[in-house]
């Protein structure tokens, strides 16, 4: 029996390792390619580092765009979105989880319908709104459409509903206001859900291209993805995969580092919040 278990766990280990290698393969491929000399394409049987390891691709990729400005803009963008989202999803999540008001379920349904509308179809309308508000080509224009999040609202509503109502009652009896209840009961008990939401929000907005591209014209507000697009748009010269991979690694580096630092917490959060 024990023997069987050990074998089972070894098989499970092997499968997990294999799967994680499969998931890692694009990253490994990108790293290998980014250090290969530019004129050595990957061919059959020749897939590792080329004749020499070079930083030329990184140098070339770095010269294409003002990356430091782009890094700063991407950070401003994702942090600016996340902070406001945390406020809106907390308040809306609480309202839909615990408050009773007319039309609550209908309203929730309408908000959830948003999840099914691809954001691309709203671009022209959103663009017109940004123009009317005179926000064109600003950091705020990038963030504005994302300040409400149907997904975050749903997540927080479910999380708050699972918190025993007795805890709120007890706090209320002790004289806590609504804000104090949120601050001392709901928010601390929902940290895993917040962490999971933050990760999803950060990574999706970090990778956002079309909207930031459409509402900005100045390099001083444009995020990393716009810089990366310069390495993609090379139809007239053929694909420059080595440079593109170097650029891609530069762009994802902060996210990868962030994930490595907080890995344990992220995994716990996903496990606890039931997200996959």
């Amino acid at each position: 029996m024990r023997h069987h278990n050990a074998l089972g766990s070894r098989v499970a280990d092997a499968v997990t390792t294999l799967l994680s290698l499969l998931w890692l393969s694009p990253l490994i491929f990108a790293i290998l390619l980014s250090f290969r000399p530019p004129n050595e394409p990957i061919t059959n049987g020749n897939i590792f580092f080329g004749s020499t390891i070079t930083l030329d691709n990184y140098r070339a990729a770095w010269s294409v765009a003002p990356w430091l400005t782009h890094y700063l803009n991407s950070i401003i963008f994702v942090v600016g979105v996340l902070i406001v989202q945390l406020v809106t999803v907390t308040m809306a999540g609480y309202a839909f989880a615990r408050m009773r008001f007319r039309g609550r379920d209908t309203l929730l349904l309408i908000i959830l319908l948003q999840l099914m509308i691809p954001s691309g179809v709203l671009i022209v309308q959103n663009f017109a709104t940004i123009r009317t508000l005179n926000l064109f080509d600003t950091h705020i224009a990038l963030m504005l459409p994302y300040w409400g999040s149907a997904f975050g609202l749903l997540l927080m509503r479910q999380t708050f509903r699972e918190i025993p109502f007795e805890l709120e009652e007890a706090a209320r009896i002790d004289g806590a206001s609504l804000w104090q209840v949120l601050r001392h009961v709901y928010i601390p008990l929902s940290i895993p859900a917040y962490t999971a939401f933050a990760l999803v929000s950060i990574s999706s907005h970090w990778n956002e291209f079309l909207w930031p591209f459409i509402v900005t014209r100045s390099e001083s507000v444009r995020p990393l993805t716009v810089g990366l697009s310069k390495l993609v748009a090379t139809t007239d010269v053929g694909a420059l995969y080595n440079q593109l991979m170097a650029g891609t690694l530069l762009v994802i580096a902060p996210l990868v580092i962030l994930f490595m630092f907080f890995q344990r917490r992220f995994i716990e959060s996903f496990a606890r919040s039931g997200l996959k």
């Binding site: 070339a60 010269s63 310069k230 390495l231 007239d236 010269v237 420059l240």
Partner: peptide
């Protein structure tokens, strides 16, 4: 638009 972003004449060396 650009379809050659990174290709610059090495002698000129500009994007």
């Amino acid at each position: 638009p650009t379809a050659t972003a990174t290709i610059t004449n090495p002698e000129a060396g500009e994007s």
